[in-house]
Design a protein around this nucleic acid. Structure first.
Lengths: 114, 114
DNA sequence: TTGACATGCAACCATTCAGTTGCATATTCG
DNA sequence: CGAATATGCAACTGAATGGTTGCATGTCAA
């Protein structure tokens, strides 16, 4: 859970996932070609993605081919985002109620600090 | 996008969101009571959640009341996870094909390094 | 006004992190 | 075999991070 979010919290890694989404089976060297960093840098990012199970790799001789694994994303949606999704309508309604109905806001919005 | 994932990539922050999910309107002090760190530590986490727009706060006198804002989560699902979700079935099928059909694997799985 | 309470700001520290560099290991090809 | 290619491992560094402590500011209540 933490690993997945952490892995996704980096534009470089998301770009890697995007590339693997468009075309699977890319090697480390191929992924490192367009990247604005060393091959080792990319390797570290990929290691993080693998640790989060977002990328699976297969050895093909001396080539390591990488594939996107979308399962953890599904897990996030269902285990974590889903419950908030369920509450989204209620929350929005509550939000609007609080924001639009001044009957409960008479003590709010006092300016303070900055 | 980065902010949201980064905000979610921390158990403390997810716990804060959980608490706000169960009961909105908690103050900083209330949120800090059960936390295994200083109030200032919690304040920093909340600042990150606010920067990611996952938490909205309203001033009520000297009390700052916090509310969960699930909208960014919805954004994640639709903008980012969604497209992989769409491809999930295809990807799984492709996965299974590669894993189960040996016709394309004759050069794979050579042991290497560790 | 005075004191207690809720929060914010800033400095500081130990740890983690992203990225680089250098070198080792394994595979392919001639 | 030996050279070239693909990758991994380890050490290092500057920057970011998580958390603390100390103090300032604003608000409520007597």
């Amino acid at each position: 859970m933490t690993d997945v979010f952490h892995a996704l919290a980096d534009p470089t890694r998301r770009a890697l996932l995007d590339r693997l989404f468009l075309k699977g089976g890319l090697t480390l060297s191929e992924l490192a070609e367009g990247a604005p960093m060393t091959r080792q840098g990319v390797a570290k990012h990929i290691a993080i993605l693998e640790a989060a199970n977002l990328v699976t790799a297969e050895w093909e001789g001396r080539n390591k081919r990488h594939f996107l694994n979308p399962v953890p994303l599904t897990g996030i949606v269902h285990r974590w985002v889903g419950k908030f999704e369920d509450a989204r309508l209620d929350a929005l309604a509550e939000f609007k109620t609080r924001l639009e109905d001044p009957t409960d806001m008479d003590k709010k919005d006092t300016k303070r600090n900055g």
